[in-house]
Design a protein around this nucleic acid. Sequence first.
DNA 1: CGGACTGTTGATCGGTATCAATGCTCGTGG
DNA 2: CCACGAGCATTGATACCGATCAACAGTCCG
Lengths: 246, 246
Amino acid sequence: MKVEGIPCDKCPLRSRKLFRDFTDEELRFVKRFKRGELHVEAGATVLVEGDASPHLYTVLDGWAFRHKETADGERQILNFALPGDLIGLQTAIMGRIEHSATALTPLRLCVFERGDVWKIFKNHPQLSFDITWLVSREERMLDRNLLSLGQRHGEQRVAYLVAQLADRAAAAGVGTRHRIAAPLRQHHFADALGMTQVHVSRMVQKLRARSLISWTHEGLNIANWRELCKFADYEPVAARRQRPFI
Amino acid sequence: MKVEGIPCDKCPLRSRKLFRDFTDEELRFVKRFKRGELHVEAGATVLVEGDASPHLYTVLDGWAFRHKETADGERQILNFALPGDLIGLQTAIMGRIEHSATALTPLRLCVFERGDVWKIFKNHPQLSFDITWLVSREERMLDRNLLSLGQRHGEQRVAYLVAQLADRAAAAGVGTRHRIAAPLRQHHFADALGMTQVHVSRMVQKLRARSLISWTHEGLNIANWRELCKFADYEPVAARRQRPFI
DNA sequence: CGGACTGTTGATCGGTATCAATGCTCGTGG
DNA sequence: CCACGAGCATTGATACCGATCAACAGTCCG
């Protein structure tokens, strides 16, 4: 875990076409709030349920996931976070966070302070709106995941998650729709989809039999993107559409 | 479906202790945006998936639920909306809504216009922050529901939903923790929890056998609130804690 | 009275969990 | 270079939760 400073004008996210351009004024404004950069190693925990951490983060590089546990220790992965995603905003808005977040890969985070969020609201409508956009987007993804868990059975659930992750990764510029480069294991899928790892394995085999994906020790590849989406009932995000980030 | 105007200073929500007080200035400001009141009958649809409706609403009275369907027509109830809750904000923030909303009881809604949300952000930091608070709260509830669907089995899932609804209704001032007054049917539970109505029936019986709840044609009663929460792993909201609304 | 709606009960089937063993890959250290 | 163990995926056998199909009963209402 180390902290250093890198100027926002050199922010690697800013150069990606996916993210909307900041005006010079916005850039100057948001710069003041960057408290540093946090590097955590794969597997490290960034946020812990119940914390009232003073920080929130934007993912600059790497994959993380949000998760939550029942009283008897069963873990549910709620969603994944990719570059450009904000994590830990709940601490700033609601005072207390009800989920944990863990790094899936080595992670580079841009650090903000909880109290500064209010300054953004106070002084910068457009950026406040962007923050709300990000929360709404998260809500929308959760809606989709809920639909998946509630109404789709195993094979489709796995297919849906594969499609979603590949699509998001491609959009965030950290992969393509044909290959997921993250070190995702079947037990991650299990925890995200509410099924056992053994069953995930069997469902993956079925998807392989349909020639939709291949999952070897080399990684996870999507053999037929179009068909996968159709099978999973997944609707890809509009490409070329810019989105905000902070 | 009828529309009329009732002044915000007489807003019935405002008198409930649950909701934070507005300053006179806030009241004057927000009044300008109330476009009217919408009354819809039980069972009517307020929002339809895919719409780019020009309106969003605050529930003034009654129960509604947000839901979403898979391509092959399976319905998932994502969450319920009670007085004080905002519905349809996605249209204003993201342009398009990805879920539907339906009235469970006769519903009284306060109508806002999509474009006015930006005006709020532009001119009123505190109210913008409140909006974001509401979205964050929804996200948090979805996190919890996702945990329930993914990791708890039937009996606990039902118990959790009962506890959650009773608690929220009591907090919103439309019921107590010992009785849910809404015309909820077992098929609503089924759609919300990803199980069949028949199975909900059996799980309800088990909860009855544990003397936790009773569900007759008279309605749904919680026999032992404390034990129900413990069994369901549900953490009640802090009573006496005020929350924002718009 | 008849029909719609809701909840209950029973029989059976299937999807998924559980438990356990095996094999593969890779990193490490002797 | 090989032995070993850790981590991960696969496979098989069995058990159980919850789905499905079907029938029936109570309530409400026109």
